[in-house]
Write a protein that binds this DNA or RNA. Sequence first.
RNA 1: GGGCACUUAGCUCAGCGGUAGAGCACUACCUUGACAUGGUAGGGGUCAGAGGUUCGAUCCCUCUAGUGCCCA
Length: 920
Amino acid sequence: MLEKTYQPAEIEPRINEEWNKADAFRCGRADRKDAAAYSIVIPPPNVTGSLHMGHALNNTLQDVLVRFERMRGKDVLWQPGMDHAGIATQMVVERQLMERQQPSRRELGREEFVRRVWDWKEQSGGMIVNQLKRLGASCDWSRERFTMDEGLSRAVVKVFVELYRKGLIYKDKRLVNWDPKFQTAISDLEVVQVEKKGSFAWVDGDPEKPFDGDALAKVLKKDPSGHMYHFRYPLAEKVAGYDKDYIIVATTRPETMLGDTGVAVHPEDERYEALIKAGAKVRLPLVGREIPIVADTYSDPEKGTGAVKITPAHDFNDFEVGKRHNLEKINVLDAFGKLTDDVPEAYRGLDRFEARKRVVADLAALGLLAKIEPTTHTVPHGDRSNDIIEPWLTDQWYVNAGELAKPAIAAVETGKTQFVPKNWEKTYFEWMRNIQPWCISRQLWWGHQIPAWYGPDGHVFVGPDEADAKAQAAKHYGKDEALTRDEDVLDTWFSSALWPFSTLGWPDETAELKRYYPTSVLVTGFDIIFFWVARMMMMGEHFMKEVPFHDIYIHALVRDEKGQKMSKSKGNVIDPLQLIDKYGADALRFTLAAMAAQGRDIKLAPQRVEGYRNFATKLWNAARFGEMNECVRQFDFDPHAVKHTLNRWIVGETERAANAVTSGLEAYKFNEAAGAIYEFVWGVYCDWYLELIKPILAGDDEEAIVETRACTAWVLDQCLKLLHPFMPFITEELWAHMVEHGERRLTLLCLSEWPRLSGLSSAEADEEIGWVVKLVSDVRSVRTEMNIPAGAKIPLVITGASEATIARARRHDETIRRLARLDGIAFAEAAPKGAALIVIGEATVALPLDGVIDMSAERKRLQKEIEKAEGDRNKAATWLANEANVAKSPEHVVELNRERVAEAGDRIQRLTAALKRIEG
RNA sequence: GGGCACUUAGCUCAGCGGUAGAGCACUACCUUGACAUGGUAGGGGUCAGAGGUUCGAUCCCUCUAGUGCCCA
């Protein structure tokens, strides 16, 4: 016998163990070798990561799909694994070394440090894998991959070498986003823009308020950003037609002025026309360098003074301006963000923010500081380091993303790959069509070291291994030369981009690659379209000549119940594992699936999870009811052959539910599918069917009992199946518990067959049970309104009923009496005096409660009913009175309104009669 | 500044050209033989505002207001 309540914590580990023992999730099962393949690669979580709500949603949806297709008989591969997360992992290990007061990374040296990282990975990395298992993720865990695995690394090298040979990977000196904390380049996507606003204001010219450098230093100590500084740059020579001897420029980063090599004004800005004509120059304060004033449309005449300082080595826009005007690029920062030797001696070696204060103070002392104003501007920060990112001029490796993007764009244009919901393709196109060269080198030690070697003169040789590079070098130099390998590693996303095929064994031509590539669908969040989707599409198209996935399902972000993005700093993070502990993985999964409507974020309230836990309990108890009543599925049970109306009705309802769930899942409408099974299990099976069959089970019609027991068991089986993708644990448990034909099940639920039902619905049964349901509901309603004690049994008299209705009432006599708490059903010509009356169809049902009911309450109730019916009739009648409506509407709509008028009129008539009887 | 969404019951959200739905919360009653993590009944909405298209608009279009996100 089942326990009285469902305890997820007890069954979940056990069920996981059973799946594991049965190898239930392995792809390529022998019995499915002729089946269609269905594959999903997991968006690899990062090896340092732990399960957060976004993962929970992402993996729940994947698991729902995968379990659904597995039950539909497909050969399913859900490929799990993790990426090595270059910066994040290196950071974790470095921090650990520091905390343990062990030698630092540099002291250990590269080889030893990398060994330590592997140690860390073995011991504490990959926590998330076990967390995914707790969620119920039915990945083929035997195939787990890691981006640093031997095979995947081989794929990385092959891709690098091939792209290099095709000229699609190259080395270039450009500005990169430099992270001074980690001393590495990072990609645009790893940069977060943080809005800053300062508080210090000062204007030159007020003798009462001299410049206070200490006060500014204090403000900047808290936050170095948030101010606009206006400097006067003196002209090298006075220019005729220009009335001042200086030009004012503004900047939020004063220290970069030491690297200024130009000042730009708009070519059509009349204020500066004379300066441009004269080819004027300014003398850069503090430095003394003469730099040109150039005309460039980059400067905005509306903004500030319309003149901007140009620092080509430290600003992306300035870099472009500098290129157009051949301006010198002077690097004033080193890898740590300290000032280089290319600045005046006083500033050399200073930290960038120290230099900021000094430069401002020194300019103020020279009378060249015009003003400081607080301003709101965005400042780039490293998403891992949280340090302020500097655009920095370095040699890096780049992928020609623009070229690789072309087929990837075409694949979506032609529909080879489809976004669901479709509107995300706009975001994809927008980004792909404006894609920048992808900087793939990182100045880290943890990752795939770039397969490039340099000769003594710096000539580069790229090859699959050192021997190959040496051979190339020997040929190039005409003799053997010592080579040194490029120290840098590749961006983690470079290896992740290969994930859909590298995990299947590429570059080897494996059977898995053939069978499971392209994958069926990628499930991911919109925030990852650029990271994942775009890069996998590019690499897939290039190396496999085929898209990596047919569909891309983009799901929402999980927010807190107020709609705020969850973040540690806000303290509003909901930990999925805590929810699992409290309510069970099934409840969490169902919640996420039920709320995953396309195109909308999920605002998660824990109460919602509790509600679905209750749903699980409900199912549990329905099963318990079946068990107590010996509802056992029979070998020969055929839902098409059931005779009893109730059973004919429920098998039809089951078919409708199965169709709704199936079509919901096929269309990635997880919420609709979840809603359909929820409503069926609770609202139909539990609320009505199980209640309606109680009198039968308690009765003495043996044939009906046998059929009903078998039918109850069969419907429950269908519920378990339909619910399994959403709630795998409880359904698997109940499946095992609810024996079949008196014996234990032969298959696990997760490997059983998905319901494919048809031809089960019966209009006649639907109508009959619909009538019973309506009668019971209406009687209950009246009882409550008349304040009849819930326990009291009352009589019921049906009048004016047709033969068919009388027969119906007789057939369901027991049921109606029980559910409506009646002590008998009688038939009469006219309703007895002092009765409450209900109009159902052609009949009027009387509850003779003379002396029990409050007649004034009954009068009120009837009047209310009449009013409602009148409202309905008037609405429909008014609609019909409009000739245009009747003339132009489809026939069925006109008919519908005619029926409404007739039906409402009928009701009014009989309700009025009932009212009269009371009054008379 | 460019783009994408959103605004429906107290809250969180579905829906969608033909008389508005769910869950939670709320109210009343019920320890009835699966379930109080439950049952029964009930209250609660000019579907953000203004125009337009249509026989008919919560739904389609335009504008306005507000909110959120992405990219500059």
